[in-house]
Design a protein around this nucleic acid. Structure first.
Lengths: 154, 154
DNA sequence: GTTGCAAATGCAACTCGTTGCAATTGTAGC
DNA sequence: GCTACAATTGCAACGAGTTGCATTTGCAAC
């Protein structure tokens, strides 16, 4: 994954941003991780290398990377945001609001929608790393079974 | 809009929830408002009627209404969530991440995607009140104009 | 290697929203 | 109208993320 790390550094420098120690660590950890990380987890890992690492610095670096389109953020409904270096092809997340399962789907399914939004509204949708909530197959049948529910029964 | 208020009350009672003064006020304000309200705004309006209204109570009532599918929440990227009684037909939001403009689109455009997710993944997507980020027509051309940007130039 | 200065950091205080828990209240059954 | 008990409330503390501002640092020019 060294390649990915170098690509990130290159992008940053191309835009005139500095390469500070803390930033370097954040970049290297992100590029070594092939799934989503929460900011908190990331901070803990950064601190294993640089123990005085600071919360706001990590957040600011994540914001910067996201603004440059180098990483994506997604809120899978667990009360915290997860970050990940862009993968190709892009993917999205179907989150079951009952069993919390997350299904990854490729971006292909969303291409038609993207095209339509562009044609009809002139809107260039980001269409990366969407989280769509709903019910998975299993939980749909469960829900059908007992539809008349009571307070606190959820 | 009296009709809408009564429908909300009916739904709550049908599920065995109580009709408390604070709840009543939240319901009536929500049903009188035909656009999104933030929790903070809602709390202020509730307090105009019942000055000792409490933050967590308002949040809890909003959560409850959302869980019953009576209202929808959407995060338009301003660091706070907006709430609204369900309208028919459903609509979604295209949020320009540059000029912050919000374009409302009908849910029709999303029906095909919803169908595909169901067929291919057995996933019943909620598909209500999505916020999709991207660039509006105007900001796309602006962005094209000066693509080599510098720190703090965003 | 110094210097200048914007970029980056550290910190503390803040915002929005959530949660645990004890106190209160709505309502169904008597 | 009581009573019982779960639903609801009030409060204070918490958690994730943001922000303002003074300080420090990377780096480019000399």
């Amino acid at each position: 994954m060294k390649k990915q790390y170098l690509a990130l550094v290159e992008q940053l420098e191309a835009h005139g941003y500095r390469l500070t120690p803390q930033r370097e660590i954040v970049l290297s950890i992100l590029s070594e991780t092939d799934k989503h990380v929460s900011a908190e987890t990331l901070l803990l890992r950064v601190r294993q290398v640089y123990s005085r690492a600071n919360k706001s610095v990590v957040y600011r670096n994540l914001d910067l990377l996201a603004q440059l389109g180098l990483i994506s953020c997604v809120d899978l409904g667990q009360g915290r945001v997860e970050y990940e270096v862009h993968r190709h092809p892009h993917h999205h997340h179907l989150v079951c609001r009952h069993c919390k399962q997350v299904i990854e789907v490729s971006a292909n399914a969303f291409a038609a929608l993207q095209r339509e939004l562009l044609e009809r509204h002139g809107f260039a949708a980001d269409m990366d790393h969407l989280a769509i909530f709903g019910l998975c197959r299993k939980c749909q049948s469960q829900q059908a079974a007992h539809s008349g529910h009571h307070p606190h029964a959820l």
